[in-house]
Write a protein that binds this DNA or RNA. Structure first.
Lengths: 156, 156
DNA sequence: AAAAATTAATTTGAACACAAATTATTTGAA
DNA sequence: TTCAAATAATTTGTGTTCAAATTAATTTTT
């Protein structure tokens, strides 16, 4: 296959990986009661000291406004506790409840099972190579000054 | 770095790629007026004959109920036309309007610019290798009989 | 031909995800 | 010190995504 063909298929493959992750998230929700983002938040919160919403959002690499909703739902399930920070009353202090801690101990790794399984099935050198290539890709994709207008030209 | 470390970073990398794709989708929306799924649907619809909603959903690898919303918004923008199929009145026949066709001609490739850019920056052999590794990953991730319960064990 | 099963599209309800606007609080400058 | 700027959390509004339930039409079975 030529380069263009490979690129076309890589799109498909990444799309399928994202889709598989989403499907796994829903599977976890069905059998565990938590979605992947909720599980992930629980995981981060159990790592050490309580976090502010902003810090939790930063760790999850999500917009704070998104995390508000995730935290709302965890609070409803009584897995976390929201408390106003006494030092800075703008902040909230989010910590696990007893129930949250115990669930966290039983929970699947938030890194999402199928992907983990897939990577573990590879040899170390293959994972290394994959890592190297992804690194290049991320670098280019996140590069500054990439003008979206650039892509707006006739095709097909 | 050892295998476990590489795996941990691959998670991060994939997360960042997904995030970059989402960001790009919003950039396109801002400067073009269409989100990535809308653009993608427009693209598929311009490929040839009109499609039923089911067929469009299949091409986009999305749930039909998701595509209803995407098509709704394209219809509101007068870029597509919904018509009842005369042969089978359960079906709708979705086709581009004149405006839809002209927009499609000016539109960015739905495969999402930054990723395309990133892949084009690689050598052919690198893309080939990436394609090979992703293929393995997809295969394992989509493998049947993978019990989600399997991942529910103590960790950390 | 009438009843049952299937199919296509849609609606409903839940969760994400973001940006932009808002509110409350704190920090910094005049 | 008072007023302005910045920060933290939240609300609001739009869009994506799915599964499950619903509606309308077609196909199959009896």
């Amino acid at each position: 296959m030529d380069k263009a063909g490979n690129i076309e298929e890589v799109f498909q493959q990444l799309r399928r990986i994202v889709h598989a992750l989403d499907t796994f998230s829903r599977t976890v929700e069905g059998s565990f009661g938590l979605t992947a983002p909720q599980l992930w938040a629980l995981w981060e919160l159990g790592h050490g000291d309580p976090l502010s919403l902003k810090d939790l959002a930063a760790r999850m690499q999500l917009n704070p406004s998104t995390v508000v909703g995730v935290v709302d739902r965890l609070e409803l399930k009584k897995l976390i506790l929201r408390k106003q920070d006494s030092a800075d009353r703008r902040r909230v202090c989010i910590s696990l409840t007893r129930a949250g801690e115990s669930l966290r101990a039983k929970a699947p790794h938030p890194a999402q099972g199928q992907l983990l399984h897939g990577l573990q099935a590879m040899s170390a050198s293959e994972v290394r190579e994959f890592h190297r290539i992804l690194g290049k890709l991320v670098k280019v994709m996140e590069a500054d000054g990439l003008d979206a207008q650039f892509f707006f030209k006739e095709r097909d």
